[in-house]
Design a protein around this nucleic acid. Structure first.
Lengths: 248, 248
DNA sequence: CGTTGTTTTGACTTTATTCAAGCATGGTGG
DNA sequence: CCACCATGCTTGAATAAAGTCAAAACAACG
């Protein structure tokens, strides 16, 4: 498992006591309503490394909230091209894109042994018919997912290799902080080739950029993690690695 | 205005009679419920070329459905980089990303003189508290928006210049067909530099690719439009313009 | 330890960008 | 009505960034 023991112990079998409740579906619900939500959440399902939670094309039966560990989502198009769409960490909700046509549009795969909460959409739909606050939180979460993807489009579209890597590192660290996960070296549970795929570059380029940033004293590359030594410089290089701002 | 007179006349001042109702919010609602929805929709607002419907950072006050014309959405990040996130046509809904934090995450700008329906989110929220079918349609539309952006990430991430242009042309034509808009030459209301920004390339590259596709008899470049002469070949080149499918 | 998978590094090639120039179109004012 | 300018689009030649191919180093694991 990814989280250390201390943070694991704060995860309870119920939403009411879960340390991630402010990021997750329960946010904004009254204590009573959270209790009702709990009744339909299957907490503590586990999923092994490289196993999938759902596959592209599957009927959308449930949403999944990550409790511990990490996942990636990947989509394949008609030509067989694979693109990693995102990396997900504790508190993140997966499966929202299935609301479009009741089928998952991507496959969710565990990057390491992980635990997830399973929330059946059928029952979630019924409960949200009754609880306005739940419905609003669901809309909020979908809106956030939408704007997260927009930000990603911006980064991938307008930054060069170094800018993308630097932005990714900063984003990942910010997300960890928001979740209250331990500071220090940033764990990178994915392989170089997965980073490369996600950022639309080749693994050799990822490697070269990381080496360069390390040589310049901005980061330190550890096995399975990156230590950010000079945040200000990393931010600078995230901004510099951007294309000319032309008219338009 | 973009649509020709024939299709314009099918657009009525009410959702019940709108030719786009099956794509838009009314889809799936009973006749009675559509009438209730109508009461809060301000149909027929107009917006001039280059004017904005809402701006990034504005409070989300309404959703907008395009009736006629076309728009783009653009996001600016902290470094001042601008990225066009999408082009939108009749039947498309704008403003959904604002559900994340009650603020619009991008600016919507008209590519030509257009007409839109304005749907205040406050009142929409209240009505959807009452109408399950409306809320389900809203969820559906958000799910679709999410998977549309995922598809875009796939195209931008894994295809080269030619593949992106070819994919864009095919996608735009498919969207027109879904809406029942007239076939024939595909109108391209946006400038080269806007296409370039959207596809993450330079306008010179857009120009060169279009010229090459025309030289090879795949398309014909008209002022403000593209005639697709050989769909099969265009599809081939959309698929070929893709990076090697490596392991992972 | 030897096998396997992953990451780094090097030399070379390709692709798209950059910079610069030329063409077409459409609108304005003399 | 035409010269002029502005805007948008195309084309060409030189350059830089990232991709490809190949090999070596490193790590993980039985």
């Amino acid at each position: 498992m990814a989280a250390d023991t201390a943070s694991l112990e704060q995860l309870s079998a119920t939403c009411s006591h879960c340390s991630l409740r402010y990021l997750c579906l329960p946010h904004g619900l009254s204590a009573d309503d959270v209790v009702r939500l709990e009744t339909l959440v299957d907490t503590g399902a586990t999923i092994g490394t490289d196993r999938s939670l759902f596959e592209q094309g599957d009927a959308q039966q449930a949403l999944y909230a990550i409790r511990d560990g990490s996942m990636k989502t990947v989509a394949v198009d008609e030509d067989g091209l694979e693109q990693i769409l995102g990396f997900y960490f504790p508190g993140d909700l997966l499966g929202l894109d299935g609301f479009g046509n009741q089928r998952h549009q991507c496959t969710a795969i565990a990057l390491e042994d992980s635990t997830v909460c399973r929330i059946p959409v059928e029952r979630l739909g019924h409960l949200s018919d009754e609880l306005p606050s739940l419905r609003h939180q669901l809309m909020r979460l979908m809106g956030q997912a939408l704007s997260d993807e927009e930000r990603l489009l911006l980064t991938l579209g307008r930054k060069n290799a170094e800018g993308r890597i630097a932005s990714l590192l900063l984003t990942m660290r910010r997300r960890r902080q928001l979740r209250g996960l331990p500071e220090g070296a940033l764990p990178l549970p994915m392989k170089r080739i997965e980073l490369a795929n996600f950022l639309s570059m080749r693994l050799e380029t990822v490697s070269r950029v990381l080496t360069r940033l390390q040589r310049d004293g901005v980061i330190r590359v550890l096995p399975g993690a990156i230590d950010i030594l000079d945040t200000a410089m990393l931010r600078t290089r995230a901004g510099q690695g951007a294309w000319a701002v032309d008219q338009d």
